[in-house]
C-alpha cells in the first residue's frame, strides 16, 4: 500500500479513470501553481479496477474545479479542511470552456487567428453539447455516462 501524507487543506480527486490524471493536472493548471501535488496512478479500486488519484494541498478557492465536470463527472471531489473531508463537490457541466478544447472547423476565425481564446458555450446540457462561440461548431463531450 502506497502512503501519501495527509492533507491539511485542499482537495482529493478520487475515482479518476486510470491514466487520465496527467491530463487533469494540465487542465487544472497545477503545473503553474506553487503547491504540493501528489499524483497516484493505477491505484487499486474495488469499483473501477484501477484508478488515478490527485491530492492537492492549497486553498480550495485557488482551483477552478468546474472543468472537471466537462472531463469526467464521475470523479469524486473531496474538500479537505483541518485534515478531514468536510464536503464533496458535485460536478456539473461548466457553462463556458475557455482554452480547454479547440474548434476543428476549418472555416472558423480561430483557424487563422490563433491568439484568440478558444471559447465554447454549453448549448445543450442534456446532450452534453458545446458549441464554439465564434462559428457554433458542435463539440460533444466524450465523457462516459454512468
Amino acid at each position: 500500500m502506497l502512503n501519501v501524507g495527509q492533507l491539511n487543506e485542499g482537495v482529493v480527486l478520487d475515482h479518476i479513470e486510470a491514466g487520465k490524471s496527467m491530463s487533469i493536472y494540465k487542465y487544472l493548471k497545477l503545473d503553474q501553481m506553487d503547491c504540493c501535488v501528489a499524483i497516484i496512478k493505477n491505484a487499486h479500486s474495488n469499483k473501477m479496477g484501477k484508478k488515478d488519484i490527485i491530492k492537492v494541498e492549497c486553498p480550495i478557492d485557488e482551483l477552478d474545479l468546474n472543468v472537471l465536470g466537462f472531463i469526467d463527472h464521475r470523479i469524486t471531489v473531496n474538500i479537505i479542511q483541518n485534515g478531514a473531508i468536510v464536503a464533496k463537490k458535485d460536478l456539473k457541466l461548466p457553462k463556458k470552456l475557455i482554452n480547454i478544447i479547440h474548434c476543428k472547423n476549418p472555416r472558423c476565425i480561430t483557424s487563422i487567428e490563433q491568439e484568440l481564446d478558444q471559447i465554447f458555450f454549453l448549448a445543450d446540457e442534456e446532450r452534453e453539447t458545446y458549441r464554439c462561440m465564434y462559428c457554433e461548431e458542435k463539440y460533444r463531450s466524450s465523457r462516459k455516462k454512468n
Binding site: 472547423n105 472555416r107 472558423c108 476565425i109
Partner: peptide, 22 residues
C-alpha cells in the same frame, strides 16, 4: 471565416454589422 465579425465586435468602438461570415 465564421465568427470574424463577432471578434471585431468585441474590439470595436463603432457598431459592427455582420454582412456574412462564411
Amino acid at each position: 471565416k465564421e465568427g470574424a465579425p463577432l471578434v471585431a465586435s468585441t474590439k470595436s468602438r463603432i457598431p459592427v454589422i455582420n454582412a456574412g461570415d462564411g
